[in-house]
Design a protein around this nucleic acid. Structure first.
Lengths: 201, 201
DNA sequence: ACCTGAACACCGTTCAAGT
DNA sequence: ACCTGAACACCGTTCAAGT
């Protein structure tokens, strides 16, 4: 489908894969078109034959980063368990690549990239029998939380590894990110639960 | 307090105010050190006498953007009303400056700037009588939602005004941002409510 | 189909030196 | 206390031309 290895030069897939490697090894700030070109041993201008802009390349990376989260099954569980499973699957997918959350967040902010991640979260909420508007709004809320949380988590990883922390003005040290994430998802799921038709007021 | 107009040249306050004007008129991508220097009629290098880096300048702007949200009073109301009021006040403060949410989000991500906004949200949650861990986690969740939502909102404003929308893959058009925001806050408040000692299971 | 070469119009930051 | 001048080491993107 991606049509690789046909001729002499690089394919679009080659470029995307090289970009993903730079991202993983050096991070988003070091993923420049010039550096990418250098590792492929071409001129920077050559990249513009494969992608019309850097943002479109990042959108492609965004799709590749999110993709693995599609292989998630919460067998026979209720909507809340489904939703939680998908939220964690998305987090795992974002964490699998350096600065993954930032790449995906910026792509979504620009209205680019596929809507696969959002769709999956939305489908899980639909299982709860909520109306269309609620589904859309709850999906947006959850997505903002996930991207915001993982972004923050990855930023901290970066600065911790550099030993340059700015004194995190947010309370006691530690508090495992995974537990914080679980808390946030739980908060949203419970908020949603309280909107169920048969919820106790 | 900021010691302005003492001598012949510009004060730190002058620089920050000029930067905020560029931000409001042209947006964050156009807020460059070189452009800022030009409007102040100095060389770019002169700015580094006032701020050690562009990020530290953005941290100062972040504090100024958030500041107005301090003047919020929810008289005699319960913790949930307090929290909602503070969330909306923060949103208003972010919306008052072009790309305000992005400036604040990036500053927080780097562990820079004051923690005033986060502190205010945290204090409102404390009123509910939650334990320390819950307060910290809920604050982080709410902050991620607010910054993520308003960021997205402002990005859309920008691209709508340019007519370059990428086809928003998120559902029906419209759905007033204010209503979406209120929904998200409500979701989180209700989720928090369900954690109250005397909550019905 | 894929790339080169050269250019355009920019960036943030440093640093010795000036007043 | 505040700024200049000059440099360093970069950016993304365009476009005619080459194979």
């Amino acid at each position: 489908m991606t049509r690789a290895g046909t001729g002499r030069g690089h394919s679009r897939d080659d470029v995307a894969r090289a970009a993903l490697r730079i991202l993983d090894e050096y991070g988003l700030p070091d993923l420049t078109m010039r550096r990418l070109a250098a590792t492929l041993e071409v001129q920077p201008s050559a990249l513009y034959w494969h992608f019309p802009s850097k943002q479109s390349l990042l959108a492609e990376l965004s799709d590749r980063i999110v993709e693995p989260s599609a292989d998630t099954i919460a067998p026979g569980a209720d909507w809340a368990a489904h939703l939680t499973a998908h939220a964690f699957a998305l987090r795992d997918a974002l964490l699998a690549h350096r600065d993954g959350a930032e790449v995906v967040a910026s792509t979504i902010a620009l209205g680019l990239g596929s809507s696969a991640a959002r769709d999956r979260l939305g489908e899980a909420i639909i299982l709860g029998g909520f109306d269309e508007v609620t589904v859309r709004r709850a999906t947006a809320t959850l997505l903002h939380f996930i991207l915001g949380h993982v972004s923050h988590e990855q930023q901290k990883m970066q600065y911790d590894s550099l030993g340059v922390r700015g004194g995190e003005p947010g309370g006691a040290i530690g508090d495992a990110p995974q537990a914080e994430f679980a808390f946030g998802v739980d908060l949203l799921v419970n908020g949603l639960r309280s909107r169920l038709p048969d919820a106790v007021p």
